[in-house]
């Protein structure tokens, strides 16, 4: 059996200290094996964003354990979580979240600024990932000079720069038209075929169906979409 990249066991998340607490995630068990492409669909209010924040190590669990790539991340400090986000997670956001004043090259380079590696050794690496998303001609452009699809490809390149254990995509096609969205999804599928582990969160059943395994988040619990 392959190693688990993500392993959630009995994870609860609630907000507020006093009863009645807002109980968002109600006992989630989730395993994502290495190289797997999993989609988690759910209507708004189902707890998708909360789950995404947990998976992305932006937030901690109220109860239960979260093992990312074998490491228990539920008890880490702020700095340690930052390091995990930097090294083990590649974020792809709905609204791309590129830094407007930086060029394509510099945007892709940002995670390197916060990691342990020297950036001067990584010029080739940056070029390589930018090449892999086909944006070499756009190297010196600013996000405002790019189309939505190009922006998302820059974001994907940025997510890949530190060779993360997990790619975490949050509605990656939400701000794109259907055909551009398809291109981006095709790129993600490519990455999956190259052995990347991907968790994609979306409300769109069509997008969700591109994944290898589809899950459904309903009212704070996860069910298998195929079974549902």
């Amino acid at each position: 059996m392959k190693n688990s990249v993500v392993s959630l066991q009995g994870v609860h998340k609630y907000y507020g200290e006093l009863e009645p607490r807002l109980h968002v995630l109600k006992g989630i068990d989730l395993n994502v094996a290495e190289g797997e492409f999993v989609s988690i669909a759910g209507t708004s209010g189902s707890g998708k964003s909360t789950l995404l924040n947990l998976l992305g190590c932006l937030d901690d669990t109220s109860k239960g354990t979260y093992l990312l790539n074998g490491k228990d991340v539920s008890t880490l400090s702020d700095d340690q979580l930052s390091q995990i986000r930097n090294e083990d997670i590649g974020f792809i956001f709905q609204s791309f979240n590129l830094i407007p004043q930086l060029t394509v090259f510099e945007n892709v380079q940002v995670p390197l600024l916060y990691g342990a590696r020297s950036i001067s050794d990584c010029g080739d690496l940056c070029m390589q990932v930018i090449d892999s998303v086909g944006l070499i001609p756009r190297l010196e452009h600013r996000p405002s000079q790019l189309s939505g699809g190009e922006c998302q490809r820059v974001a994907i390149a940025r997510a890949l720069i530190n060779d993360p254990a997990l790619l975490l995509a949050d509605e990656p096609t939400g701000n794109l038209d259907t055909s551009t969205g398809d291109e981006v999804l095709a790129l993600i599928e490519d990455l999956h075929r190259q052995g990347r582990s991907v968790v994609m969160i979306t409300h769109d059943p069509d997008v969700a169906s591109r994944a290898e395994r589809r899950l459904l988040l309903t009212d704070g619990v996860i069910v298998d979409a195929e079974a549902a």
Partner: peptide
């Protein structure tokens, strides 16, 4: 927003 993005990408405080 930029600060949030940088934090998500691994920037420490």
């Amino acid at each position: 927003k930029e600060i949030g993005v940088r934090r998500a990408l691994g920037a420490r405080r």
